[in-house]
């Protein structure tokens, strides 16, 4: 079992008011399995992933009955041990390379730094490793990118560099937090295909966070649908058409189709009772 989360709750407190952003989320991910987490903005999918890496700000109150990564209890790990996991055993790809890459450091240095944090080796070896990784993510002109600054390359190339950086220490799990929502639609498919290929060839597990239901089901084995900090439904990717939960059905219904064009798209209906029955 790669990831095992049971009853995860994340709350933030501000001005004496407590807000629970994640309310009892559970999911499991086997080795080499691909799980998609789908939901609207603010449904809690991103902070769920960040909680797994303990990357939330200290104000966040995180509790869970169980939160394990590869058998390791995340909650009881020291910060030093967490650092070995972060990057080393789980890579974390963020949304927009324009903001997630350091603007004043070269791509090569940023990848080499990730490599050197988890491998023993000198600067020269790290640089060679960085070049090799850039080749693996099939970036155009890897030698130029190595010495380029983030603003000198395109968004798609930036995301490839980000992937290379997170693959540097050979992780067993890849978490991708909306890795394509800042990119053009044509680049989006390329990047997802690349992630898919790398996950397969490197035998990694994948946690793909997105708001695009059909896209995720295309790349993942199973899909978890989140709404207001709770998991509404978890289903195998192939069974999307047989989704039982009204929220999932509603999401699918909102998608315009080229084959069956409709003049009006239905408005997504939300029922407060969905949350009550889960909370109990």
């Amino acid at each position: 079992m790669l990831v095992d989360i049971e009853n995860l709750r994340i709350a933030f407190e501000s001005n004496g008011k407590r807000f629970e952003a994640v309310r009892g989320v559970s999911f499991k991910l086997e080795a080499r399995q691909k799980l998609g987490i789908v939901g609207e903005s603010g449904s809690g999918k991103s902070i769920t992933a960040r909680a797994l890496m303990r990357l939330l700000p200290p104000q966040a109150q995180v509790t869970a009955d169980r939160m394990r990564f590869d058998g390791i209890d995340i909650q009881s790990q020291s910060e030093r041990e967490m650092r070995k996991l972060r990057g080393g055993r789980a890579g974390f790809i963020l949304q927009d390379p324009k903001y997630s890459l350091n603007p004043v450091k070269t791509i090569g240095n940023q990848i080499a730094e990730a490599w050197r944090t988890h491998n023993k080796g000198g600067k020269k070896e790290a640089r060679e490793a960085a070049l090799d990784l850039l080749e693996q993510v099939m970036i155009r002109d890897p030698k130029r990118v190595l010495d380029a600054y983030p603003h000198e390359i395109s968004g798609g190339m930036g995301q490839r560099a980000m992937i290379a950086m997170m693959l540097a220490p050979n992780p067993t799990l890849l978490i991708a937090d909306e890795p394509t929502s800042a990119l053009d639609a044509s680049v989006e498919a390329e990047i997802l295909r690349l992630i898919d290929e790398l996950v397969d060839t490197r035998n990694m597990g994948l946690l793909l966070i997105s708001h695009d239901l059909p896209l995720v089901s295309h790349f993942c084995d199973k899909v978890s649908v989140m709404y207001m900090g709770q998991v509404m439904e978890e289903l195998a990717a192939g069974e999307l058409a047989q989704a039982k939960h009204p929220y999932t059905q509603g999401l699918l219904n909102c998608l315009p189709s080229l084959d069956h064009p409709r003049t009006d798209l239905p408005v997504l209906t939300r029922d407060p009772s969905w949350l009550e029955e889960k909370a109990q």
Binding site: R83, F92, L101, N102, M165
Partner: peptide, 14 residues
């Protein structure tokens, strides 16, 4: 900045 999150996600010390 988001790049701080990615630096921490790489496993760098504080």
């Amino acid at each position: 900045g988001e790049f701080i999150i990615s630096a921490r996600a790489k496993g760098l010390s504080g």
